[in-house]
């Protein structure tokens, strides 16, 4: 077991790690997944004991280990406030954001692993390429981005105004920070050719039900999500909804897209 360093040296860094080791009077046991494909034959788990105080998050403990105990520990992080979506991990058996998860809410020893379902690059860092490809797969091919200014007139801008009701309708879907927790939690989405996954479908939902989007683009988005590897593969397990750190009702959005697809296909003569 590696012991976290304490004392003046670590105290100097408390602004960086978020843990004031001099003030911390408790510690927490962490069990962290370690794997470096370049040097390790197979993954292993390493135990750490880290000082904590009120408000210490999982990300704080990882930063503490990296800065004071083992600088080789790899993990992604950026904003530290649940906005960037970089630090989604498998913490005590559930997909969560490291920066939003308080140590005090977890049962020790806290087990920290990379997101299941994705290839591990190193330690807690997973390959997100597949996830981003899924997100791009619901983009219409002939989408043209309008340059700001140019030929856009005031009347054009008026036509693109969004009603408050429509804003409410799609508000939750716009919260997605593309952390990948939902796709990792979905048992069906393990194979991307079988199922696009909840994040990509939620992205399509966000535009399809946005009244400002042109019909042609949304028709193409609808075609993309109603393929056999689209919305139909959702088995309403609600695992994506359960783990979403932004509380997006992903399963409900997918079901609404199923209904919308059928409604568009139904014709009554």
């Amino acid at each position: 077991m590696s012991e976290a360093q304490s004392g003046a040296d670590s105290h100097e860094h408390h602004h960086e790690t978020g843990i004031d080791t001099a003030a911390a009077d408790e510690t927490v046991a962490l069990t962290i997944f370690r794997y470096d494909p370049e040097s390790d034959d197979e993954p292993y788990y390493e135990d750490f004991e880290v000082p904590i105080e009120d408000g210490t998050t999982v990300l704080d403990t990882l930063l503490h280990i990296r800065d004071h105990v083992d600088s080789s520990l790899s993990f992604r992080h950026s904003c530290r406030q649940g906005v960037c979506g970089s630090d989604a991990m498998f913490i005590n058996g559930k997909q969560r954001l490291g920066c939003k998860t308080q140590i005090s809410d977890l049962e020790p020893p806290v087990r920290i692993e990379p997101l299941p379902g994705q290839d591990v690059r190193k330690d807690l860092v997973v390959d997100m390429q597949d996830f981003y490809e899924r997100m791009e797969a619901v983009e219409p091919e002939d989408q043209e981005l309008e340059a700001p200014g140019g030929d856009t007139t005031y009347e054009d801008l008026e036509q693109r105004k969004q009603s408050p009701e429509n804003r409410e309708e799609i508000k939750l879907s716009t919260r997605c920070i593309q952390c990948g927790a939902c796709v990792s939690s979905c048992t069906i989405a393990k194979d991307p050719d079988q199922y696009l996954g909840p994040a990509a479908i939620n992205k399509a939902y966000r535009f399809i039900f946005d009244e400002r989007e042109p019909d042609e683009l949304n028709d193409e988005r609808m075609e993309l999500v109603e393929q056999s590897n689209g919305v139909w593969r959702c088995q309403t397990q609600f695992s994506c909804t359960e783990v979403c750190p932004k509380d997006i009702p992903l399963t409900e959005h997918i079901q609404r897209l199923k209904r919308e697809s059928v409604k568009r296909k139904l014709k009554f003569w």
Binding site: E133, R134, E136, A137, E139, E141, Q143, P192, D193, L196, E223, L224, E226, Q227, S228, N229, G230, W232, K258, S261, V262, K265
Partner: peptide
């Protein structure tokens, strides 16, 4: 923009 994933035929709605 990537469209590398194969598109599949929609026979699922019905």
């Amino acid at each position: 923009m990537s469209q590398s994933r194969p598109r599949t035929v929609n026979t699922q709605g019905i």
